[in-house]
């Protein structure tokens, strides 16, 4: 296996294990730390696809800012096991397990079909619909150019979204 494949499998395993540990940790601060590990693994995947800007911005925004806010809330709320509600009944756990299993079967069936999405050109595998191995678009210069010419309307709308979210947050949080 080439080095890229080894790194891919390692990062995927790390992401999955960290995600499962987020759910299984008893301590909420541990859950946040595992979630940060998930974000690092995902940024690693982005770097493998040569989307450097996306990888770093993922770290700055998600792992650096949003998780800090999560930690703020958790630390100020100070939850411990006594204040947690009673664990759910066995029937609901059983129903959850069955539903999760069905979802797994459906996803596996759907993804098995994805072999049709690969075409072989000259011995190497390429995707039929999306460009995956020529990774110039992830570089910040090209990304900026596309973002500000083709996708400028969604960009501006997201700025309106931020403004209204801030207005809403200030109205809720103001103390008078």
């Amino acid at each position: 296996m080439s080095l890229v494949e080894i790194i891919f499998w390692f990062l995927s395993g790390l992401a999955l294990i960290s995600a499962i540990m987020v759910l299984l940790s008893k301590n909420p601060v541990h859950s946040v730390l595992w979630l940060i590990a998930v974000f690092f693994a995902i940024s690693g995947h982005y770097i493998l696809l040569n989307a450097q800007f996306l990888a770093i911005v993922n770290l700055i925004v998600y792992a650096g800012a949003i998780m800090v806010l999560f930690l703020f809330v958790i630390m100020l709320m100070n939850q411990n096991a006594e204040t947690e509600p009673r664990s759910k009944s066995t029937w609901i756990k059983l129903a959850g397990a069955i539903a999760g299993g069905c979802l797994l079967i459906v996803v596996v069936a759907a993804v098995r079909d994805s072999e049709n999405l690969i075409q072989n050109i000259g011995g190497k595998a390429y995707a039929k619909t999306a460009v995956t191995t020529h990774g110039e678009i992830g570089l910040i210069e090209n990304l900026g150019r596309v973002l500000f010419t083709q996708y400028v309307v969604p960009f501006e709308i997201s700025s309106v979204l931020f403004l209204s979210a801030m207005v809403g947050a200030v109205v809720i949080g103001k103390k008078d």
Binding site: S158, L161, G168
Partner: peptide, 16 residues
């Protein structure tokens, strides 16, 4: 993408 952004813009201020 526009659909998604419109959906988000119509949801988040409503929550506030």
């Amino acid at each position: 993408l526009m659909f998604y952004l419109g959906l988000e813009l119509s949801t988040i201020p409503l929550a506030a």
